[in-house]
Simulated scan of single mutants.
Amino acid sequence: MPRPLVDTETIITVALDAMEDPREGPLTARRLATRLRCSTRTLYQQMGKQEELISALLNHYFVKTAPELDSTLSWKDAIGAWASALRLAILERPNLSRHLSTDNRPALIEFTRPLLAALIASEFSEAVAVEVCRSLVHVIVSLTLGELETQAHRYDETAIEGDHLARLLSIDANAYERSPDGKMPPPVFLQSIHWLIGGIELQRQTQVART
């Protein structure tokens, strides 16, 4: 009698936990199959190749963690709230989130829909709102992955030689310092969001002046 397939939801739940388990290495089909007590053949039959499994995990996780933005927020505050939510979601699942390559960015579509709706409600055209969301996704993902990678590398600023620019670039890791619980974004994150919002506002003002 053929062995029944493992429930997809069970596979995803177990895979997410296994991926973040600090006691084990990278997630492999063999290790996941062992946890699920099934064969790798069953796993491949249910989820496809490793790349397909990773895509399924990303989609599941970021759909589940999509924020509900307060409809009373201004578009600027909506961007800030959404950006903070995406940052925390990435930090919550660092090993999974490291797979957010350009090819896997579509996993963030549903996570971004609340922001798109907030921008359109604030009288952004749909085309402009989509471009704003696209830019924000790339910036927030890059900043947060940078935060993950640089937390372990700290520098003594007084020991770095060179001119002011060389010092600033060399101590970039220090700009990623965050609160002990990780909830307060580092200065470079907050500053980048502030500049992005300023640029968006300036573009809107320019477009209004031309009409």
Rank of each mutant, 00 (worst) to 15 (best):
A166L: 10
D7W: 00
T8G: 00
Y155P: 12
L27S: 00
I54C: 01
C133T: 02
I12T: 02
E161G: 12
E123I: 01
P4T: 05
E126H: 14
G80F: 04
T158I: 02
L91D: 08
A18P: 06
A29Q: 14
L53F: 08
Y44P: 07
V208P: 01
D70W: 01
T13N: 08
Q205C: 00
A15F: 01
T102R: 13
L190C: 04
V63F: 05
I140C: 04
A33L: 05
T65R: 12
M47V: 04
R204S: 12
P22I: 09
Q151A: 09
E149C: 07
F124E: 09
A117M: 03
M184W: 11
T211V: 15
T13L: 10
P187K: 14
E20C: 06
T13Y: 05
H60G: 00
H99C: 06
P187G: 11
T10V: 05
M47L: 08
R154C: 12
D17M: 07
E177N: 10
R134L: 10
K76I: 08
S192N: 03
L53V: 05
S97M: 07
G182M: 01
R98S: 10
A127V: 10
S170Y: 11
N174F: 05
R167N: 15
I11N: 01
T40V: 11
V130S: 01
M184L: 15
Q203V: 03
S192C: 09
Q203P: 00
Q46S: 14
M19D: 02
S74K: 02
A209H: 10
E52Q: 12
H153I: 12
T42Y: 05
I197R: 14
P4N: 02
R87W: 10
A18H: 15
P114N: 00
L143I: 11
T102H: 13
P22H: 11
E161R: 10
I193A: 04
L88S: 13
R178F: 11
A83D: 06
A85L: 01
F62A: 07
V188R: 01
L57I: 09
M47A: 09
I90D: 05
L115Y: 01
T72P: 00
E177V: 13
S97E: 02
A89S: 15
Q205Y: 00
S39F: 09
L108Q: 03
L32K: 07
S101M: 03
I200L: 10
D103Y: 06
S170H: 14
P114C: 02
R31K: 15
R167S: 13
H138A: 14
A209W: 11
V130H: 07
Y176N: 14
Q45A: 07
N174W: 02
P2R: 12
V14R: 06
R154I: 09
P4R: 07
